[in-house]
Write a protein that binds this DNA or RNA. Structure first.
Lengths: 361, 361
DNA sequence: CTGAAAGCGCTAACAC
DNA sequence: GTGTTAGCGCTTTCAG
């Protein structure tokens, strides 16, 4: 551009950092050639490759991915939306996601939507603005506005940790309904009759608890007592919930009022609890022991998430195990495939779950 | 540009998304005016503001932050480097960081460096390439090459969770040495004489353990037995370590060989253990109880991190509490100040720690 | 295999 | 208050 007469007025800002131009000049090639040496080394002669590498090393050049992303419409960035990072549940997924993406040259951006769903729209706008090559959602999307926005953006999306017949795009998760049913059948099979749930108030925990209650009813069991605590769940909440669970008066249930009170038996009102997290389960178990309730004899406890602490507790806590890392790996693969332009054949993966039986039930 | 004759050949790619141009055209103003309406509404007439807002709403326009960042050299992105997200220790910091940044309109990008320090350089390059407005490091930086790179990039940096006389830039943390000393003095004051450490092999845990051992020596206590496990620490590792800690033969210590064996007394070889995490402490405590060792009578246990589980364990575990959220908030503030162009007066904040005494010691 | 030109979508500098 | 112009640093397109 400025090649001839005027002293090439160094206008405007310029971050001051080394650019591809500088590298190219030092290597004695055109900028585009330097670019190719870095991005598609196969397309360039050995000689050029050597000179460019040397220039990069000498200058400490670090490519500006903002510029690259703008020019190529590929940001090599993947965004993740979690309710909060402070729950241990999604940690394995985050870890696996980061590692798998990283191995393919992508970075992960994490956003917290909170459990209220309040910030979801704002967060999504911030994410879309960065033009990520993919978005991973934990759970399925609530707001309709957000759904439309996402669809309009054309960015590949993976919903995770849930299953729905109407996925936005791609999906890797499992059925919370199936979990609730499996646990109910299991406890029934172990001779438990007075079932209860202790759940955080997030949508997925609620789904499990409701399916659990329905399955219990189908098995001919009395109404399931349901105690709900605020998400994210804590040990403390688990401890505090014992009283509510064991109270003699009728606790709120998910069944119609006409059925309440039917089929009550003598003895403690509850002989098995399905908790929506291992944290709740451990808290409950701790408190039960302190109050002289025998686990599992008086009370069976089943958790969810299969955290290390569930296995290491005394007694060891039965729990529903989900392959969180597997979800992360699969989600990353989906996105990478798409980013590389390959079409994804199977867009939905049910990763399943396992009920791990331990001493608490 | 193309205003006259040729049919303005719609060249090249164009992501297809709505751009500021489209919004401006619809609102009947120049692009820069639309830009101002969005970014600095005070500089624009009410009439223009209304028309632009309407155009944005109608088109579903989401600004391309890649382009904005490139043009303004402000990406509104902050990068965080953690060893791994799978440890609960930094979760509060991540949470607080995300929230504080978010409130100011910044996004957080998370990178995992691993505990090996192997990936650190590559990760840093990936981060610098995104031209974030700030970088938060957990711990202080090891590799010299990385230090130079970071310095050269000119990006504001906050080191956290540690203290050093030679910070790279800004710093918010606490002294691990002071922690080790405080715990040693505390246990000595409680009448414990045969001290031990159980630590992950990360640099900060090692620092605490070594300071603990030196302080014990200064107090005239026998050599401190040191058991080291691989980071990240787990409950399992804590359980497994009991045997090594209680073995009668000499375990490796951090003191010279000539001092070993001096001052040995009758009874169990160890009567107090300082663990580098609450996970280790809880595992140790669980195993001790199973083997019939009374806590705290036979064995005092102190953890680190003050996780909820420490307080909720039975017996409740004494622990060193660090204000992880405070670290996150302060780090975010530092970076925001810098990004807004304000100079940061005090560049180092010692956030301190508290030893929480509970039943385990 | 290498290069020149054009422009991704936005904002900093000046004008008016 | 608003517009014009010129890039930010890179990569695509098209030509050798």
């Amino acid at each position: 551009m400025s090649d001839a007469a005027p002293p090439a007025k160094r206008s405007r800002r310029s971050s001051g950092a080394v650019t591809l131009h500088d590298v190219a000049r030092l290597a004695g090639v055109a900028p585009i050639t330097a670019s190719r040496a870095l991005n598609t080394p196969a397309q360039v002669s050995a000689e050029v490759l050597r000179k460019v590498s040397e220039a990069v090393a000498r200058t400490g050049y670090v490519p500006n991915r903002l510029a690259g992303g703008l020019a190529s419409t590929r940001s090599r960035l993947v965004a993740l939306v979690v309710p909060t990072v402070s729950g241990p549940v999604f940690l394995d997924t985050i870890q696996a996601l980061t590692e798998t993406l990283d191995a393919a040259g992508y970075q992960l951006m994490v956003g917290q939507a909170g459990y209220e769903g309040r910030r979801e729209d704002a967060l999504l706008e911030a994410i879309i603005g960065r033009r990520p090559d993919g978005i991973v959602l934990t759970g399925i999307l609530h707001s309709d506005a957000s759904r439309r926005r996402l669809l309009a953006s054309g960015i590949p999306v993976v919903e995770t940790w849930d299953l729905t017949p109407t996925p936005l795009d791609m999906l890797v998760g499992f059925s919370h309904q199936a979990v609730g049913e499996a646990v109910a059948r299991y406890l029934h099979g172990r001779g438990r009759r007075r079932l209860a749930t202790l759940s955080g108030d997030d949508p997925r925990a609620t789904q499990r608890a409701q399916a659990f209650a329905r399955a219990a009813e189908a098995l001919g069991l009395p109404p399931v007592r349901a105690v709900v605590v605020k998400a994210p769940t804590t040990l403390q909440a688990g401890r505090g919930a014992l009283t509510a669970l064991m109270a003699e008066h009728d606790a709120p249930t998910t069944l119609p009022a006409t059925r309440r009170g039917r089929g009550r038996m003598a003895g403690p009102p509850v002989d098995a609890v399905f908790c929506s997290s291992d944290l709740l389960a451990l808290g409950l178990l701790t408190e039960a022991r302190m109050q002289g309730l025998a686990v599992p004899d008086d009370l069976a406890v089943v958790g969810f998430g299969d955290l290390e602490m569930a296995a290491q507790a005394a007694p060891a806590i039965s729990s529903v195990s989900v392959n969180g890392a597997g979800i992360g790996v699969q989600a990353a693969r989906f996105l990478i495939e798409r980013a590389e332009g390959r079409a994804v054949a199977e867009r939905v993966v049910d990763i399943g779950f396992r009920l791990i039986e331990r001493h608490s039930s």
